[in-house]
Simulated assay, not measured.
Amino acid sequence: MIVCHCMSITDHDIRRAVDWMRAADPQVLITPGKVYRALGKKADCGGCLPHFVETLRACDNFEVPMQLRGLRRAMTQERHHEGRRKGN
């Protein structure tokens, strides 16, 4: 099924790119931009991105590496305790 009409990207292309990236580096954080680059293409109008991301999430090899899970939560908690207090 075609996911991106502008660049003629199919769901099969996305799955192959994800599999290739995961095989090359098991710790890679896969993003839509990296998939476009792996396919030698770039986003044009962006209308496909919701379906593109949905297709990415459905891939068997699309998962956040274990050591990167919860990273955003840890970073925001760290920032919360830094800096000046409001009274200063």
Rank of each mutant, 00 (worst) to 15 (best):
M1G: 14
M1V: 09
M1N: 02
I2S: 12
V3D: 01
V3I: 15
H5C: 01
H5V: 13
C6N: 13
S8W: 08
S8Q: 14
I9T: 01
T10M: 04
T10R: 03
D11V: 00
D11S: 14
D13C: 07
D13T: 01
R15D: 09
R16L: 12
V18S: 05
V18K: 00
D19H: 08
D19I: 03
W20Q: 12
M21E: 07
M21H: 05
R22E: 08
A23S: 09
A23K: 07
A23F: 04
A24D: 11
D25L: 08
D25F: 04
D25M: 06
D25C: 11
P26F: 06
P26K: 10
P26A: 11
Q27I: 04
Q27F: 06
Q27R: 06
V28F: 07
V28D: 02
T31A: 03
V35F: 01
Y36C: 00
A38C: 10
L39F: 01
K41Y: 09
K42G: 05
K42H: 11
A43T: 10
C45H: 07
C45V: 05
G46N: 09
G46W: 00
C48I: 06
P50M: 06
P50L: 08
P50D: 07
H51E: 10
H51K: 12
F52N: 03
V53H: 00
T55G: 00
A58W: 00
C59H: 05
C59V: 08
D60Q: 07
D60F: 05
D60Y: 07
N61D: 12
N61A: 12
N61E: 10
F62M: 11
E63Y: 15
M66S: 13
L68C: 09
R69C: 09
G70V: 02
G70H: 03
G70W: 04
L71K: 06
L71Q: 06
R72G: 08
R72L: 12
A74M: 06
A74C: 05
A74F: 05
M75I: 14
T76E: 14
T76L: 15
Q77T: 05
Q77A: 10
Q77E: 15
E78H: 13
R79L: 15
R79M: 13
H80A: 15
H80D: 12
H80G: 09
H80E: 15
H81C: 06
H81T: 14
H81M: 12
R84W: 11
R85D: 11
R85A: 14
K86Y: 13
G87W: 13
N88D: 15
N88E: 15
